Amino acid sequence: MKKRLLILFIIIFSINTYGQKVIHKPDCIYSNISGEIEKVELTEKETILHFHVRKPRGGWIYIPSATYIESSLTNEGRLYVIKGEGVGVAEKYYLSRTAEIRYKLYFPALRKDVKEINYDESNSRGNKFIYKLDVSKNGYSFRSSKWRNMREHLDSKNKSSINNRDKQLGEVKTGKSDGDVFPEDLPKAFFGNWYDKYGTLILITTPEYIVSDFRIRYYRSIQKIGNNKFKIETTANSFEILSLDNENMIIRTDKLSSLKKKPSNNRSEFIKGNWVHKNRISKLTVTDDFFYFYDKTSENTLGSKKKRIDHVAESKSDDVIWYILYNQGEFSIYIANKINGEYVLSPRGQMETKYKKIKK
């Protein structure tokens, strides 16, 4: 009986392991999309591609309904896009406030024996495609800056054929450093809210992102350089962790900084409630778990759009409260500032958009 239960447990564990398989920064032979695939999720029911695309502000993204993925080996059995998250299918998405966006596309599940896939948007005005995206293992572009620099060098050689490039990439892959790790492999002590000696919030660190200089940064590469010592490169900057324990951390950027960690205040009770725009053109409601947004024409009492509260941090004795929000593959920041004894709530970088709490 025990043997049967053990076999059943192994089978269930194997299914769950496959269902949770995630490929980080997958390699490919060629791509002409304006960005990259950050990760691929493989489950029993679906295949999810996570895109990070950069375009000039004012540009747009369009995902045709005929967009598909297929096995690179057989070039058959096309799997067409089911839905988009962050960017809809067969809908133009305009980049009005930013020059980059993260979104997800959902496809039917791949066969377990598929190692490489092609991606094609099937756009009659000019196809966007990815050739031989490796969905069998994590990519080296994330794990090694040496690999990334070499990859860019190879991509710049227009004279190289796809076959030659495939051979070159195979040779470069042997240069991976054993010190490279993923965000989830960092010590748990690293994740949290970090302050300087004056009580000012300097860093918010999570396995998904880092907040520094008032902006959300995403991991590019992490290298272990010693015991609890790491070199971290983000989408905007890099720094080194020189020492780390549960409450203290010393980092080096252009200077040394000694930081102290404080527990996260996940729920600020006095922020919860209804807020109205200074010009009364819109309002929002803050609850334990969500920000609900709705304009003056919305009849939905819970708002026409909601963003989940992912993280909360306070700075300088509650004078500033940071809210990291998540919606459809994208993180954003709202900040509550105490001005003349009252809080004003604003999205980061949009000081003209101010909300004041409605008093009961």
Score class of each variant (00 low, 15 high):
Leu169Cys: 04
Arg111Ser: 15
Lys128Leu: 14
Tyr195Gly: 06
Asp288Arg: 04
Glu44Tyr: 08
Asp178Trp: 11
Glu91Lys: 15
Ser34Arg: 14
Asp178Ser: 15
Asn75Gln: 15
Ile335Trp: 09
Ala236Trp: 07
Val276Cys: 03
Thr174Ala: 07
Lys272Asp: 07
Pro187Phe: 07
Gly303Cys: 05
Asn127Leu: 14
Tyr30Trp: 12
Gln350Asn: 15
Phe230Gln: 03
Val172Asn: 05
Tyr94Glu: 03
Pro26Asp: 06
Lys260Ile: 06
Lys255Cys: 05
Glu330Leu: 11
Lys21Trp: 01
Lys278Ser: 14
Lys115Thr: 06
Gly349Thr: 13
His311Asp: 00
Tyr103Arg: 09
Asp185Gln: 09
Tyr80Ala: 02
Tyr131His: 13
Thr353Leu: 15
Gly84Glu: 02
Lys39Cys: 03
Thr353Glu: 13
Lys354Trp: 00
Ser332Asp: 11
Asn300Val: 13
Gly329Ala: 03
Leu154Tyr: 14
Lys224Trp: 06
Glu299Leu: 14
Ser136Phe: 09
Asp245Ile: 11
Val172Ile: 15
Val114Thr: 15
Pro207His: 01
Ser72His: 05
Ile339Ala: 07
Leu79Arg: 13
Lys261Phe: 08
Gly126Leu: 12
Ile251Gln: 04
Asp295Pro: 09
Lys137Pro: 00
His311Met: 03
Ile15Asn: 06
Arg78Asn: 02
Lys357His: 06
Ile101Glu: 08
Thr297Arg: 08
Lys356Asp: 01
Ser160Gly: 00
Glu100Arg: 01
Lys39Ile: 03
